[in-house]
Design a binder for these strands. Structure first.
Length: 286
DNA sequence: CAATCAACCTGGGTGC
DNA sequence: TGCACCCAGGTTGATT
C-alpha cells in the first residue's frame, strides 16, 4: 500500500494527534509476529512514555519518545487510525468519510493514550510490523537507511551516482531499490518514469545528461504532488483519520492498462518487469 | 557483488 | 455457489 506520500500523510497526521500524549496501555489481538520485540519488553518500553514527535523516514513511521523510538512499517496493507475514545460507539467507531469502522477484524494492535485517544494498527495481510528501538539502535538504523528524495541531500550528483551503481539493470528495478534511494514504490516509479518520458526497460546506465535531469526533477515533483493530495488510495490505503487519499484520480499510467495515454492517446501497456506489474506508454516513453 | 524470484498473508476479482 | 487461479502501494533471504 503505502509509498512515500502515503507514509508521509499518516506520519504528519499522527504528529498532530500524538505529540505530547502519553501511552497508557497496549492491547495485542491474536498471536502474530507483527511486534518485533518480545511482548513484555515492548509493553515495558512503551507504557507511561510521552510522544515527542512523529515523522517519516523512508517508508517507516517514526514515533520519537522521551526515551527510544517506536517504528512502524505498513508494508502493503497496514493502516494506523487514531480516534478519541469519547467518540467510540458500541461495536466500533464508524468513520464518516469511508464507512470503515475501528476496531475491525484486521485490527492487530491497539495503543490507548492517557487523553482517551486510541491508535489502531490494522493490517489485512499481516506483512506490517512495529518495533521499539533504543536511541543508539535507532541512530544506527537511520544512518544505514538510504537517501531521502525530498531532502536537500538529494542532489543531481548523488542521483547520478545511484544510477551508476545500478547501471546494468532497468530503470524500473533501479528506482524500486530502497538501498540507496528510498520512498519510491511500484506506483510512483511508473508515474515518475512517465513524467520523465523514459521507458521502465531502459538500463539505468544508458541515460543521456538531459534524460538524467528529467528523471531527477520528476522524482520530487510527483512525490510532492501526491503528498498535496494526501497520497493514493488504490484499494486499502487510509490516512490516520480513516480517509482515502486523493491522488488516484491524477495517476497517468498506474492502474490504467489499455486506457488512453493522457499525452498521446496510445493505449497504456502493462507487463511484468522487475517482478512487478509495470505500466507505461510505448509512444511517449523512450 | 548484482540480479532474479519465491515467500510472507489475506482478500478481491475473473473465468469455468 | 464453488473452486481454481491470478493479482495486489513491500521487503528479504536463497539461489543463480
Amino acid at each position: 500500500m503505502p509509498e512515500l506520500p502515503e507514509v508521509e500523510t499518516v506520519a504528519n497526521d499522527l504528529n498532530q494527534y500524538l505529540r505530547g500524549k502519553i501511552i497508557a496501555r497496549l492491547e495485542l489481538i491474536g498471536r502474530h509476529s507483527l511486534v518485533k520485540n518480545s511482548w513484555p519488553d515492548f509493553k515495558k518500553s512503551l507504557q507511561g512514555k510521552k510522544v515527542l514527535k512523529v515523522y517519516r523516514r523512508a517508508k517507516m513511521i517514526v514515533v520519537a519518545l522521551e526515551s527510544g523510538y517506536l517504528l512502524f512499517h505498513l508494508k502493503m496493507t497496514g493502516q494506523l487510525i487514531y480516534v478519541l475514545k469519547k467518540s467510540l460507539v458500541a461495536g466500533g467507531h464508524p468513520i464518516a468519510s469511508t464507512g470503515v469502522a475501528v476496531p475491525n477484524k484486521f485490527t492487530r494492535l491497539i495503543f490507548h493514550f492517557k487523553n482517551g485517544g486510541v491508535l489502531y494498527f490494522n493490517d489485512i495481510r499481516k506483512f506490517g510490523w512495529v518495533k521499539f528501538l533504543k536511541n543508539e539502535a535507532f541512530e544506527a538504523l537511520d544512518k544505514a537507511t538510504g537517501l531521502e528524495p525530498l531532502s536537500k541531500e538529494f542532489t543531481f550528483k548523488r542521483f547520478e551516482e545511484i544510477l551508476q551503481r545500478r547501471s546494468r539493470t532497468s530503470l524500473k528495478a533501479a528506482l524500486l531499490d530502497q538501498k540507496h534511494l528510498v520512498g519510491l514504490g511500484n506506483i510512483y516509479v511508473d508515474e515518475v518514469l512517465y513524467n520523465a518520458g523514459l521507458s521502465p526497460k531502459r538500463l539505468a546506465g544508458s541515460l543521456k545528461e538531459k534524460e538524467k535531469i528529467k528523471l531527477f526533477k520528476a522524482i520530487p515533483l510527483i512525490l510532492k504532488k501526491s503528498i498535496a493530495r494526501r497520497g493514493t488510495t488504490f484499494s486499502d490505503f487510509l490516512d490516520a483519520q480513516g480517509r482515502q487519499g486523493g491522488f488516484a484520480a491524477l495517476l497517468k499510467v498506474y492502474g490504467r492498462a489499455s486506457l488512453a495515454c493522457p499525452r498521446c492517446g496510445a493505449p497504456i501497456i502493462k507487463s511484468r518487469l522487475a517482478g512487478r506489474g509495470t505500466h507505461w506508454c510505448k509512444n511517449c516513453q523512450k
